[in-house]
């Protein structure tokens, strides 16, 4: 490639030098049309066509059927339903509102949507890709640097579009593997009396109608899976931090924090709210 460029450069500059310094004066009219057509049209067409064919040949296909991890993301209003399909998996590992990827490996992100068009975008890792109801789109990413990157819905999708974000966490491959293994497990048993009471609050308030906590009787599918919610970096799809204080604020003010969100704000007694937050925070 470089050699070709050097040859071309020498040729063009050589010709210029020849015409201006070595043999200035009028050029022979009989050769002019041939040089113009040959050097100005035929030569570039041939060279550029060859380069195009060669270039397309060595271009990696971002949509080639992959090996490795498949992450299926469904856009909801206004959060992200996430399923991990490791190679050879027959059923997915279900999560939400956070996408973890192994560094230095290619991962396919399969995208679709529930009701309206969303757009999947992690600016630091790749371009946008729209998510359509009833249609699958795909983007592949091969992140190189370990770190946490912000993802954001990039297509206006309703009242809380601006609050529809997520964290993309790129991990060392070994760390990712052990994380994924843990993510596939059922929820941990609550540690401590407050968390135990919190689980009772969770079940008796009917949270399980919409949210699943695997290993308990909560199996709802309307909202995000909360089996390991305590290990996520954000709450409410990037709305808040995952702290005890933010958990209580979110549960009691969800509709104010995220306009038109499906989750109703719960008016619980302060001690029950606190127990519930402790239970959720403990779901590592």
């Amino acid at each position: 490639m470089l050699a070709g460029a050097v040859v071309l450069w020498l040729f063009v500059n050589g010709a210029f030098y020849f015409m201006s310094r070595i043999r200035p004066g009028r050029f022979d009219q009989t050769y002019a049309p041939h040089i113009l057509i040959g050097g100005g049209i035929i030569l570039p067409v041939v060279i550029l066509s060859a380069l195009l064919v060669w270039g397309l040949g060595i271009l990696t296909d971002p949509r080639r059927p992959g090996d490795g991890l498949v992450v299926r993301v469904t856009g909801e209003q206004w959060w992200w339903r996430v399923e991990y399909w490791p190679e050879g998996a027959t059923e997915p590992i279900i999560s939400a509102n956070e996408i973890r990827l192994p560094a230095g490996q290619r991962a396919e992100i399969h995208l679709t949507s529930d009701k309206v068009i969303h757009s999947f975008w992690i600016p630091a890792l790749g371009g946008k890709m729209d998510m359509f109801p009833g249609r699958d789109t795909m983007i592949s990413l091969a992140p190189e640097k370990v770190g946490t990157y912000r993802g954001q819905c990039a297509e206006f999708c309703g009242a809380s579009h601006a609050w529809m974000a997520f964290s993309a966490v790129v991990m060392e491959p070994e760390a990712f593997d052990s994380w994924l293994e843990a993510e596939a497990e059922d929820a941990v048993e609550p540690a401590g009396d407050a968390a135990l009471r919190g689980r009772q609050v969770f079940l008796s308030e009917g949270c399980g109608a919409c949210h699943a906590v695997r290993g308990t009787e909560a199996v709802g599918q309307v909202g995000p899976d909360l089996t390991h919610v305590g290990s996520r970096q954000t709450l409410g799809a990037g709305r808040m931090a995952l702290t005890l204080e933010d958990l209580t604020t979110w549960i009691s003010h969800s509709e104010a924090l995220k306009p038109e969100v499906k989750m109703p704000a719960y008016d619980l007694a302060p001690d029950r709210l606190d127990d519930l937050a402790r239970y959720l925070e403990g779901l590592k």
Binding site: D114, L203, G206, C207, G208, A209, C210, E217, A218, V219, G220, Q221, V222
Partner: peptide
């Protein structure tokens, strides 16, 4: 009733 769907919460929970 027991599991709900992505649009409908599970009745049993409440």
């Amino acid at each position: 009733a027991w599991r709900g769907t992505r649009a409908v919460p599970a009745c049993i929970a409440c």
